[in-house]
Design a protein around this nucleic acid. Structure first.
Length: 472
RNA sequence: GGCGCUAUCGUCUAGGGGACUAGGACGGGGCCCUCUCAAGGCCCAAACACGGGUUCGAAUCCCGUUAGCGCUACCA
């Protein structure tokens, strides 16, 4: 068996949809698993919508996800000559015919059929025009499309994820393959390209199932054998409808901006509709490739659950060493407009890593440790009000206990000892003594242990913030 | 309307005739840890859409019903 060739063929619409990204991922996983070739082909036959910038977005998205292609990007728009030649071949072989019906006529027929609540099917008016009739119309310069003669036979295939799927040719249209301006229609261009690029496995979205019998008819008319088809189910929003903008972020780039790891996104996407067959969830790339199979793909649609995505990202975050997080965090800080000023971020990152689910959240926490609280959250406000005078009193004691420590002894252990001793001699519960410090330093009732927080913030900044909060 | 696809906890899924008192994960609840919150550990609640078959035996195979979704262009 020759080594498989697969392709991902997005149309450049301006962003990379997560559903498309998952389709690309499955193709990539399959290629890597089987030692096959992964081709990237941009379906830009819709000339108005296609731009170089749009293509770049797709390329960037795939690159970010670590999905690498072996060939391409090829551009469908540049194969117009071959598409036309294939259509001519079909015409010459009698497998296709010229249709002189105008768009207006067709639209009117369709509208009539719809008003009668009937399905519209082309009435094959031009199916049996005589050669002289065709010649005459061509002579007059009448524009025409080329339609495939759909045979009245069963068209079935063994889908790698759904099993056997069968259609009847008589239920299908004599669909147009070449427009009157000579440009190809999608189904024709795809088949022509897939043949030319020797694609062996077509792994694509479920929504193409009804295109498949048309494409198989084209393969048969062109006298070529069909590839293996694998139709992966759709991704749905939380309401069970096709995932769209109103469900929130649907573009890969948005998740990138939110501080999601490519590895986490890849892992999450892979598990959406596919499973290794056992209980594994967090899987490194190599493990995923080893476990991948088309048969492991689910046949029902999956709901995109951002909560689980964030959980998964948190898993990757907590196992990634702080040093590797440094660059991404710096980038996010830059976005937030926070100056680092040469300070060491590593201890801060370590301190808040397990308390964040995304790089963005992590960077926000680092920013607070760096520059103090930008605001005081409602829970912290409530605490301040509830404690009344004792809030400032506790801060005063904290300053008194901590001031004697010098830079060298400003370490978690001595800090905690000093604070404990101070609270004990004042007869205050440790929690009541520490929580005001947390609020003073972060504006929040939530953080790493207070002694670690003080260490991470540093002696002088800590004391400044304590005094400032005390004076408030 | 026609054609097609799908149907296991709220969500992602395991399951491919007996190993199922249906397993795991997210989320939810509880406990432990603890100065708070996470992380981590332990525990709990939570599902085979419905109805017929086939079979000694069905979540698993077949048929139907219902529901959801997709396609139905000189779009891709």
């Amino acid at each position: 068996m020759p080594s498989p060739r697969v392709r991902f063929a997005p149309s450049p619409t301006g962003y990379l949809h997560v559903g498309g990204a998952r389709t690309a991922l499955f193709n990539w996983l399959f290629a890597r698993k089987t030692g096959g070739t992964f081709v990237l082909r941009i379906e830009d036959t819709d000339r108005e919508r296609s731009t170089e910038a749009h293509t770049q977005v797709i390329v960037d998205g795939l690159t970010w996800l670590g999905i690498t292609w072996d060939e391409g990007p090829y551009f469908q728009g540049s194969y117009g000559d071959r598409h036309r030649a294939d259509a001519e071949r079909l015409l010459a072989a009698g497998r296709a015919y010229r249709c002189f019906c105008t768009r207006e006529e067709l639209d009117a027929q369709r509208a009539r059929a719809e008003s009668r609540k009937e399905g519209f099917r082309y009435d094959r008016r031009c199916h049996d025009l005589s050669p002289s009739e065709i010649e005459a119309r061509l002579e007059l310069g009448t524009p025409c499309t080329i339609r495939l003669r759909m045979p009245d036979e069963e068209i079935a295939w063994d889908d790698a994820v759904h099993g056997r799927i069968s259609f009847q040719g008589r239920d299908l249209d004599d669909f147009v393959i070449l427009r009157s301006d000579g440009s190809p229609i999608y189904n024709h261009a795809v088949v022509s390209d897939d043949i030319a690029m020797e694609i062996t496995h077509v792994i694509r979205g479920d929504d193409h199932i009804s295109n498949t019998p048309k494409q198989i008819a084209l393969y048969r008319a062109l006298e070529r054998s069909t590839p293996v088809f694998a139709h992966v189910p759709m991704i749905l929003g939380s309401d069970g409808k096709k995932l769209s903008k109103r469900h929130g972020a649907t573009a890969v780039g948005e998740y990138q901006d939110q501080g999601i790891f490519p590895a986490a996104m890849r892992n999450f996407l892979a598990l959406l509709g596919w499973s290794p067959g056992d209980d594994r969830e967090i899987m490194p790339e190599t493990e995923m490739i080893a476990a991948f199979s088309l048969e492991g793909i689910q046949s029902k649609p999956a709901v995109f659950d951002t909560v689980k995505l964030e959980w998964m990202n948190g898993q990757y975050l907590s196992t990634t060493p702080a040093a590797e997080l440094l660059r991404p965090v710096e980038r996010q800080l830059e976005r937030l407009g926070v100056a680092v000023g040469g300070r060491d971020l590593l201890p801060m990152i370590d301190a808040v890593k397990t308390r964040s689910r995304t790089i963005t959240q992590l960077a926000e926490q680092v920013a607070v440790r760096l520059n103090g609280p930008a605001s005081v959250d409602p829970k912290a406000e409530a605490l301040i009000r509830k404690m009344g005078d004792s809030f400032a009193a506790n801060l005063g004691r904290a300053v008194a206990a901590l001031d004697p420590l010098d830079e060298a002894t400003w370490q978690p252990e001595p800090i905690l000892d000093a604070l404990k001793a101070s609270a004990e001699s004042a007869g205050v519960k440790l929690g009541d003594a520490l929580q005001p410090i947390r609020v003073a330093l972060t504006g929040s009732t939530v953080s790493e242990p207070v002694n670690e927080l003080l260490t991470v913030v540093g002696r002088s900044a800590s004391l400044d913030r304590l005094r400032a909060a005390q004076a408030r």
